[in-house]
Write a protein that binds this DNA or RNA. Structure first.
Length: 566
RNA sequence: GCCCCCGUAGCUCAGAUGGAUAGAGCACAGGAUUCCUAAUCCUGGGGCCGUGGGUUCGAGUCCCGCCGGGGGCACCA
C-alpha cells in the first residue's frame, strides 16, 4: 500500500528536480511513516523538511512544488496536503483500499519477495549438550526460529542450524561428572569435580548408564570410561534438547558438529590458511590469531600451549564453512552474555575475505522469570534453574512463544508465569487468538443463516458497501501487514509483528462491538464477511509466522474452569 | 579499569534517515450484553522521556560526562 504511494512520490520529486524547481542530486530515502495524529492522514513524509535543510530553502515551498508535480492518475489518494512545518500528509482513497483488499483476498498480496531466493542461514540455540535448556535458551531459540520463518515468508531460502560443541572440555566435564555419579551409585564415596555439572540430570544419566552397561565402567580405564560416558551424555542431552525444542515447535534443517568439523580437518585447514597469510603467530607456547588487525580489542588464542584447540578456532572454521556453503546472509542468535565474541568472530570473517556485514549477530537479553510479580529465584551455581520444559508445561507453547517474542531482543524480558497462564484480557496471547476465533464464530453463524461464506469470492462482493469509517480503518490496518512483515525481516525484529497483531486484533474487537457483520442486507453482509475474513487471514498468517496456533474456538477457559472443579 | 545493552505513566513496554500536542497494554474508577462468544467494547485520570551539558530552526531519538540496573572482560567453556 505504502509502496504505491512511494512510487508516486518518487516520481513527483523526480519531476520537480527535472523541472528545475529543486536543484539537487542528493535525494534522501523516502520514508513514509504514520503521522502522530490520526487526523493527519494515513502516512506522512518529511522529505520536504530534509530537503529544506540541505538546500536552504523553505520547507513549505519545497512541499508545494512536490505536490504540484504529484500525478495520482489511478486515484489512490483521497487527500494530499501540506501541514505543520512542511510535512506532506496523505490519505488513501476508499477506492484504492477496496482494490487492495480484493487483491489480498485473491491471494495476490501474500507473496512478498525480498529475498529473491537468496540463501540465509539462521544459527541459534546451539547450546552445549551438557544440560537441559532453561528459559533463557527458550527465548533465543524462539527468536531464531521466528527469524527463519520471517525470512522463509519473504522469498529467502532459510535454513535453521544448530551447532553442537561436542569436541571440547565441557563435554569432557559432563562425562567426568557422569562418571563420578556412576561410581557413587556403586557405593563409592567420591569427591565431585570442581568444574563438574551439579544438576540432578547428571545422576539420572549415571543411573541410565548403570542400567545399560552395569558395572562395566568400574573396571575400565578411567579415560576410556569418561570418554564413553561423555558420548553417552552428549547424545542423551542432545536428544532431550531436541525434544524440548520440538515441543516448542522448533526443528532444525541441519546440525553442525564441532567434532566432525575437526575430524574433516577443516579447523586445521582454516588455521593453515590464516597461517599462510601471516595472521598466526606463536607466543608463550600458544598460537594466536591477529584479530586485533581486523578490529578486535586484542589478539586471540587459537591453539593453547598444551596443544588443544580453542573453541574460537573451531568457530572460525565453522563460519568459513558456512560461507563456503553459499549462504549470502548469516544470522547468529546468541545470548547477550556472548557479546564479547562478536568482534573476534567478525575479525576472523574479514581475515578470511568474507564480508563481515553479511554476518548478523542478534544478541538476545536475559529473561527474568516472575510469578505474580515476584522474581523466581534461579541459582546458577547450584545448577538449579527453571527449565524450558517446566515453563512449557506450565503455560503452554503458544503463551510461552508469544511472551518470548513480545519484547525486542535488546530489552530484558520479564516473563510472568501467572500472567502467561491467565485466560483473561490481561493476557495478550488470548486477545489475538480470540479475534481469530471470533471471526470463525461469525462464519459459523453465517453458515447457519445460509450465507455461503466459504465460497465467497471478492469478485462477487461490492466492497463499496464498506463505507463506515471503522471499516476503512480496519481495511487499512489489514493492508499494513506486508509493510510490517518487511520491517520485521529487515530489522530482524519479530516484536514488530507481535505489536501489529495486537493492534489489528484490537481494531477488530472494536469493530465487532460496534457493527454487526450479519444483517438482513445480504450484499452488506457479504461485504463485511469479506472484510472480517481478511482480518482472520492476516491474523492466522501472522500467528503462523510466530509459530502460534490460531484456534477457531476459544474453548479452554470453560474446560479448565470445569476441571478446576467449580 | 575497559566494552555492550537498558533507564519513557503506579507496573510491563512501543516509539522506524532527528520533526507536528510523547503512545499502548495492565493496574485503578465508572459504564455497555433482548442481538454474530463479555477471553470483548466504551469513558476517565495519570509523564521534569534517569541526570547535566552540547549539536540543531527542532532532540525520547545524535555527541560528551555522570547516576542507577544487567551482561562481558581469560592459553574458560
Amino acid at each position: 500500500m505504502k509502496s504505491h504511494l512511494r512510487d508516486l512520490l518518487a516520481q513527483a520529486i523526480d519531476k520537480t528536480v527535472r523541472g528545475g524547481e529543486l536543484r539537487t542530486t542528493d535525494l534522501p530515502p523516502l520514508l513514509l511513516e504514520p503521522p502522530k495524529q490520526r487526523e493527519f492522514g494515513d502516512v506522512a513524509s518529511n522529505v520536504a523538511l530534509i530537503l529544506a535543510k540541505r538546500l536552504g530553502k523553505p520547507p513549505r515551498a519545497i512541499a508545494e512544488a512536490i505536490l504540484r508535480n504529484l500525478e495520482d492518475r489511478e486515484g489512490i489518494l483521497a487527500r494530499a496536503e501540506i501541514a505543520g512545518p512542511g510535512f506532506l500528509n496523505f490519505s488513501f482513497s476508499p477506492k484504492f483500499c477496496y482494490q487492495r483488499l480484493r487483491a489480498l483476498e485473491e491471494g495476490k498480496n501474500g507473496d512478498l519477495d525480498l529475498g529473491k531466493g537468496q540463501k540465509v542461514q539462521v544459527e541459534f540455540a546451539s547450546v552445549n549438550p551438557t544440560g537441559p535448556l532453561h528459559v533463557g535458551h527458550g527465548r533465543v531459540a524462539v527468536f531464531g526460529d521466528v527469524l527463519a520463518r520471517l525470512h522463509a515468508a519473504t522469498g529467502f531460502q532459510a535454513e535453521r542450524e544448530y551447532y553442537i560443541n561436542d569436541a571440547g572440555k565441557q563435554i569432557e566435564n559432563l562425562g567426568l561428572s557422569i562418571y563420578m555419579r556412576y561410581r557413587e551409585l556403586h557405593g563409592e564415596s567420591i569427591q565431585f569435580p570442581e568444574h563438574g555439572y551439579p544438576g540432578g540430570y547428571v545422576r539420572e544419566l549415571a543411573a541410565q548408564a548403570q542400567r545399560l552397561w552395569g558395572e562395566r565402567f568400574l573396571s575400565e580405564e578411567k579415560g576410556a570410561a569418561v570418554n564413553a560416558l561423555s558420548q553417552h551424555g552428549c547424545e542423551a542431552m542432545l536428544g532431550a534438547i531436541r525434544g524440548d525444542l520440538g515441543d516448542f515447535g522448533i526443528t532444525f534443517d541441519s546440525y553442525a558438529s564441532e567434532r566432525s568439523l575437526r575430524a574433516k580437518g577443516e579447523v586445521e585447514g582454516t588455521l593453515e590458511l590464516l597461517r599462510s597469510r601471516g595472521l598466526i603467530y606463536s607466543r608463550e607456547g600458544a598460537q594466536w590469531f591477529k584479530s586485533q588487525a581486523y578490529g578486535d580489542d586484542k589478539d586471540r588464542t587459537v591453539v593453547k600451549s598444551d596443544g588443544e584447540l580453542t573453541y574460537f578456532a573451531s568457530d572460525i572454521a565453522y563460519h568459513r564453512n558456512k560461507f563456503a556453503r553459499g549462504f549470502k546472509k548469516l544470522i547468529n542468535v546468541w545470548g547477550a552474555d556472548h557479546h564479547g565474541y562478536i568482534r573476534r568472530l567478525k575479525a576472523a570473517v574479514k581475515a578470511l575475505d568474507y564480508d563481515p556485514e553479511l554476518l548478523h549477530v542478534v544478541l538476545v537479553q536475559m529473561v527474568q522469570l516472575t510469578r505474580g510479580g515476584e522474581p523466581v529465584r534461579m541459582g546458577k551455581r547450584s545448577g538449579e534453574f527453571v527449565s524450558l520444559r517446566e515453563v512449557l508445561e506450565e503455560v503452554g507453547k503458544d503463551a510461552a512463544r508469544f511472551f518470548f517474542l513480545m519484547r525486542k531482543a535488546d530489552s530484558h524480558l520479564d516473563f510472568d508465569l501467572e500472567l502467561a497462564k491467565k485466560e483473561s484480557s490481561e493476557n495478550p496471547v488470548f486477545y489475538v487468538q480470540y479475534a481469530h476465533a471470533r471471526v470463525a464464530s461469525i462464519f459459523e453463524q453465517a453458515r447457519r443463516g445460509g450465507v455461503a461464506v466459504d465460497e465467497l469470492k471478492p469478485a462477487d462482493v461490492d466492497c463499496k458497501r464498506l463505507a463506515l469509517a471503522e471499516e476503512i480503518d480496519l481495511i487499512k490496518r489489514v493492508l499494513q501487514y506486508p509493510e510490517v512483515l518487511e520491517e520485521s525481516v529487515q530489522e530482524l525484529e519479530p516484536h514488530r509483528m507481535v505489536f501489529y497483531l495486537l493492534e489489528l486484533a484490537g481494531e477488530f474487537h472494536r469493530y465487532y462491538n460496534r457493527v454487526r457483520v450479519i444483517s438482513d442486507d445480504l450484499a452488506l453482509t457479504r461485504a463485511r464477511l469479506l472484510l472480517v475474513r481478511s482480518v482472520q487471514k492476516i491474523i492466522r498468517g501472522g500467528l503462523a509466522l510466530l509459530g502460534i496456533e490460531a484456534p477457531v474456538k476459544m474453548a479452554s477457559r470453560g474446560a479448565e474452569a470445569l476441571a478446576a472443579g467449580q
